[in-house]
Amino acid sequence: MPSSSSSRDALVDIANLHFARGSRRIFSGVDITIQRGKITAIMGPSGTGKTTLLKLIAAQLYPDQGSIHLDGQDVHRLTRSALYTLRKRVGMLFQSGALLTDLNVFDNVAFPLREHTQLPETLIRHLVLIRLHAVGLRGARDLMPSELSGGMARRVALARALIMDPMMIMYDEPFAGQDPISMGVLADLIKTVNDALGLTSIVVSHDVAETLSIADYVYVLSDGVVIEQGTPDQMKASESPWVQQFIHAQANGPVPFHYPAPEYMADLMQAG
């Protein structure tokens, strides 16, 4: 079991992370290590702050306590320009794709290049088409984001995330709201891209089957702490009733079906 200090291969090292939004505690002491070159999945039911975790890693949010090291740097202690330099090497795929609505597919993918480099337009075109071809949307280059389906928008966003040759890509709920075909396509893409380009990937998701099929290592979050971690096989074999409920999608278990409420009969009688 990798501990936060021993592993030399860790790209991201999260130690004793505490974070609260207003009075709501979201993380109370989370330790996560993300290995280089691997796909690490972070799972958990909705509302456990998985997206928040990604934003903390990217230093869009600041923790109340604890630290996050990315490639050996404490992301929350970096100066603004150092942080921006670091972010150029990290891609993030938002749930909605986060494509710029007033640019077409081609310009969206070319956007980071145009912002950060002075490459000639012919080279930009070349680089963009390679990425678009990789996600199978070379033919859709002239479409506007509003004309894309959700799955296509995410693939374009992936092409855009890849354009700066990042060392790591973070996926925020890549499968949410997708039909099975599109899910399969995305899962395949994440796996292929990770292995072919030697990236490190963090996938935040609650889609069990798809995530387990591509992940090398899994963390399960609940109530602000890591309650289980291991390879997908270890997960499936886990004896924790909580993990069993989550993985097999049972309606009732440690996570109760009922929202906390007074005793049923008493509640009914009270009205009469």
């Binding site: 990217a58 330099t85 972010r87 938002f94 794709g97 494509l99 710029l100 956007f111 980071p112 912002e115």
Partner: peptide, 22 residues
């Protein structure tokens, strides 16, 4: 507001583009 709702502002920040500037 829509840019914020569709995470375009966060997306820009993640691409190391300052939304205030852009």
């Amino acid at each position: 507001g829509l840019m914020k709702a569709t995470e375009q502002l966060s997306g820009l920040e993640m691409m190391a583009v300052d939304p205030f500037r852009f």
